[in-house]
């Protein structure tokens, strides 16, 4: 038995997305640690080598049982690929698990399917100490030793020689593509100037 709309009460309200910018950009010289991690397919990979092989890399941190920001980060990354592909399809997105003991490759595979993340988004899990080393290397260790206290951050590196751009806060898929476009054009201009 379903209720009908109440008298005097507008039955539908159109959705109005948030419009304000919700992240802060900064640039850093991070050195990604030389650690081995595991992909969602169970393959062992050296993180530094893996990222060096990518023309451009985007990184964020999530865990599959997360009750807050991680589903939104994962959905954002999946949605960002369309805009990123338009700018330059030579990139890889890496989502590193903050709860590697729980986030087994099987769980990450299932999580990737849930969010339909596609072929450009890769998940990494591994040893707790290696994840901690990764977080330390990008100045993102969460407080109190509790993963629930992690902050939403996105890192972007345009080529192997460039510094890492860091976006603190929730960044939209559209903004990721815009930042990628912006960084690419600045990088392109700089390379022309050097030549």
């Amino acid at each position: 038995m379903f209720a009908t709309a109440n008298e005097g009460y507008a039955a539908e309200h159109s959705v109005q997305p948030a419009k304000h910018k919700s992240y802060v950009r900064s640039a850093h010289n991070y050195k990604v640690p030389d650690v081995t991690m595991t992909t969602a397919h169970g393959e062992q990979v050296n993180v530094a080598t893996l990222l060096a092989a990518e023309e451009s890399a985007i990184i964020s941190f999530v865990f599959t049982s997360c009750a807050g920001v991680c589903p939104m980060i994962s959905a954002t990354m999946a949605s960002a690929t369309k805009g990123l592909d338009t700018v330059d399809p030579d990139y890889g997105i890496y989502l590193v698990s903050l709860d590697p003991e729980y986030d087994t490759p099987e769980r990450l595979t299932s999580y990737a399917e849930r969010f339909n993340t596609g072929s450009k988004v890769h998940f990494l899990t591994g040893d707790v100490e290696d994840v901690r080393a990764f977080l330390q290397s990008v100045d993102s260790v969460y407080e109190g030793g509790n993963k629930m206290n992690h902050q939403p951050i996105t890192l972007m590196r345009i080529d192997d020689s460039a510094e890492w751009l860091r976006f603190d806060g929730m960044i939209s898929g559209k903004s990721i593509a815009e930042e990628y476009q912006r960084a690419k054009s600045i990088n392109h201009t700089a390379s022309i100037a050097i030549r």
């Binding site: 959705v15 997305p17 948030a18 419009k19 919700s22 009750a67 807050g68 589903p71 939104m72 959905a75 954002t76 949605s79 849930r114 969010f115 929730m170 960044i171 939209s172 898929g173 559209k174 903004s175």
Partner: peptide
């Protein structure tokens, strides 16, 4: 629902209980 300004989201991962 619409999340982060431009993403259409739906299902259990964006149900109220998740957050």
């Amino acid at each position: 629902a619409v999340g982060q300004g431009d993403i259409e989201v739906f299902g259990s991962d964006f149900a109220c209980t998740r957050c």
